[in-house]
Design a protein around this nucleic acid. Sequence first.
DNA 1: TTCCTTATGTTCTGTAGCGTACAGACAATG
DNA 2: CATTGTCTGTACGCTACAGAACATAAGGAA
Lengths: 258, 258
Amino acid sequence: MIQTELKSSPRQNHLINALPVVEYEHLLPLLELVPMPLGEVLYESGEKLRYAYFPTTCIVSLLYVMENGASAEIAMVGNEGILGVALLMGGETMPNRAVVLSAGYAYRLREYPLLREFERMEGNHGGALLHILLRYIHVLITQMAQTVVCNRHHSIDQHLCRFLLMCLDRLPSYELNITQELIAHMLGVRRESITEAARTLQIAGLINYRRGHITVLNRPGLEERVCECYHVVKKESDRLFPEISQVMPLRPRILTLG
Amino acid sequence: MIQTELKSSPRQNHLINALPVVEYEHLLPLLELVPMPLGEVLYESGEKLRYAYFPTTCIVSLLYVMENGASAEIAMVGNEGILGVALLMGGETMPNRAVVLSAGYAYRLREYPLLREFERMEGNHGGALLHILLRYIHVLITQMAQTVVCNRHHSIDQHLCRFLLMCLDRLPSYELNITQELIAHMLGVRRESITEAARTLQIAGLINYRRGHITVLNRPGLEERVCECYHVVKKESDRLFPEISQVMPLRPRILTLG
DNA sequence: TTCCTTATGTTCTGTAGCGTACAGACAATG
DNA sequence: CATTGTCTGTACGCTACAGAACATAAGGAA
């Protein structure tokens, strides 16, 4: 069954896939496959991290929730990254929430084995994982930086385009299972604004949607309409992980995932 | 002369100050004191980093400048941090600009010796610098995350309060030498909006200003008015660098710098 | 099928902040 | 002093988006 194949390899995560064989094999027995249902909260703000997660087919949002309940997405992490960089940095907790935005799977790693891996590396046994994670942190910082800019200067329409493209980059199909309500929550805007923006995109023939389901019909069209923020992050990501940028040609147009 | 004293020790930078004596003494001969005049551009977007900077008495802004010239501040770095974390992460360049926001001094370190320091550490000679920098990256990420939130949800008034408080945290006095125009550029808003916000604060008796010069009269007042974003970052910073949070009682009320 | 929940659509009003234009005020400089 | 450039103040129409209240429709459950 294709689904089983899809969820069964840690190498679907680009960071893990970038590991040399020796380090990969050392890490493998420590990884545990876990399902990631929509809406699951991996870390609560201020909560001590117990696992790091390497998403394979899911997408996770880092979200700040304000005292009054309003929220904003800080960053989006899928199979290109890792959740729990605070473990590497020694922070233990972060003042934001990690919540599953698109259901799927991830491999998780207990805090303790992860830290032991770093110790091993500092002892000069390679250090590939450390360096890969540092490069990923660079990409993450870039993503956050552009989110700052985007939140300041760009319209909701552009923001939505960026959001959709970022989801596409992390999924194996052109279909997203997500409500406008949830998107609004992520972008920190009203649901009505998303409704309107989505309708604009649908009229332009770029997407098609119905009740919690969005199909992207014309990705190049989205890329034309999106603000520079998306491209800056994409470019930086491709620059730092060149081997990955060729991995996802994404030919199949329709292939629903779970 | 007090000025000379003030600018003369690398330990004025909190990260350097947190180093154990052995590592500090090893780093010392590699550090070069440089003046940081207002407006100086340390790194241009996409430009290869040649130095890392440890500010002592200056403040530097990480700024993204859009294609159309509009801009937004990504993060602010002063004596609590370091510029050039991309060197550690292996990114070499960043898609944003680093520009001096408040004149002063910094110690700089060539790219090459810095990387050699890291190699030394991975060879298990301590690693204090590496771990300190990782903790700082955590704080930096937190700062950026809150800037995302602030840009999305908070008013220009609150944003200005946050900006002023962040400057105060990095300076030895309650006086800032900065024009409204420059603040507007940093926050990514119109100059007129800053004029109005500043006037509001002045009427409330919190600040006093004249042509490129702002005096904070009532810091607690600003702290009451600022959004939670400021406090979240401050708290996280104090948590990760507890020794530092007691360093700056900042008793002297008026003590102009440069 | 019918019902009921959940998702989306519509509309109205209020307002923060933008763009633009220009006026006044301070400070350096010749 | 007078001039000039740099800051700061004021004003006004305009737009994007918030807040709120309610209408409709899709689709799963009974």
